[in-house]
Design a protein around this nucleic acid. Structure first.
Length: 271
DNA sequence: CTTTACGCCTGACGGC
DNA sequence: TGCCGTCAGGCGTAAA
């Protein structure tokens, strides 16, 4: 499911329900996600005020006075705000109970998501300590990409999907940004010029900005917390368009598996 | 150090 | 109708 635009859309969707609220506890029905939900999560959050909801990479960070709830949506996770007595659906694994009578409810069929706790600063959590720059921050540049790519022989698509390179770029937006930049996804990361990396960095920012403005991309199940789909699917140039005409040159869009992930590109426009 | 393949899990879909 | 294989928006980890 969710890449940066979908997680950020989720963050914005849940914040109004948590702002100036306290948590009453956690109702855990299925603790076995990507990692187990901490057994003491409910007591950790009980009667604690929510100070903020932030996003780092694809993680949501719910700040409480003494620590952070860290939520990752994996491939199929979805957060909604519902009245706490709303009947459960299949795969509704955990509720964070809010003192408004509502609940922040996580549904995740594939259970690749996670709900974790970090006392103190979230930066200290092992999963978040080594993340690369936020793509929408000024610190993310083509110069950074070019410098990090030196000597790398793996495909540039894998390089920009690696969280230590830059965070938040998943399979959809990797294909889309490489298309916009005219770079073939299989090209070795270390054999791309600084000029082209500067262009790529700009296109990564742009494609994520555009997707965010559209509320993300809905291919199958993704929905924002209020139930709306993401409309960026209408703006995809290559992803999920195998065999269809390239919007620039009309040659058929190619579909190939690169390092276990389906990839889409235009053979004419991307070199 | 880099690169590659695997596996976690369920559900949808197509072919037979 | 059922069964089976394939695939899916992520990503840590083991192995080479």
């Amino acid at each position: 499911m969710p890449e940066l635009p979908e997680v950020e859309t989720t963050r914005r969707g849940i914040w109004p329900a948590l702002q100036d609220r306290h948590l009453l506890g956690a109702d855990v029905r299925q603790a076995q996600l990507r990692w187990p939900i901490p057994a003491d999560l409910s007591s950790l959050v009980e009667n604690q005020p929510v100070l903020s909801v932030q996003r780092r990479a694809k993680y949501l960070l719910i700040e409480l006075p003494h620590g952070h709830i860290i939520i990752h949506l994996g491939m199929s996770g979805r957060l909604r705000v519902v009245p706490s007595d709303t009947p459960l659906q299949k795969h509704d694994h955990i509720d964070l109970l809010i003192d408004s009578g509502k609940a922040l409810r996580l549904n995740d069929p594939r259970r690749f998501g996670s709900v974790l706790w970090q006392t103190g600063h979230w930066q200290e959590h092992a999963l978040l300590a080594a993340l690369g720059p936020e793509p929408l921050d000024p610190g993310f540049t083509g110069d950074w990409l070019h410098q990090r790519a030196q000597g790398l022989r793996s495909a540039v698509k894998n390089f920009i999907m690696a969280q230590k390179t830059v965070v938040g770029v998943g399979n959809i937006y990797a294909s889309e940004s490489l298309y916009r930049a005219g770079i073939h996804p299989r090209r070795a990361a270390g054999r791309i010029s600084l000029t082209r990396y500067r262009a790529l960095a700009g296109h990564i920012k742009d494609v994520l900005d555009d997707a965010l403005a559209a509320g993300g991309t809905t291919l199958r199940d993704y929905q924002s917390p209020d139930g709306a789909p993401g409309y960026f699917v209408q703006s995809l140039d290559v992803y999920d368009r195998a065999g269809l005409a390239c919007n620039a040159c009309a040659s058929p869009i190619q579909r190939e598996v690169i390092a276990q992930r389906t990839s889409y590109f235009c053979r004419q426009c991307q070199r």
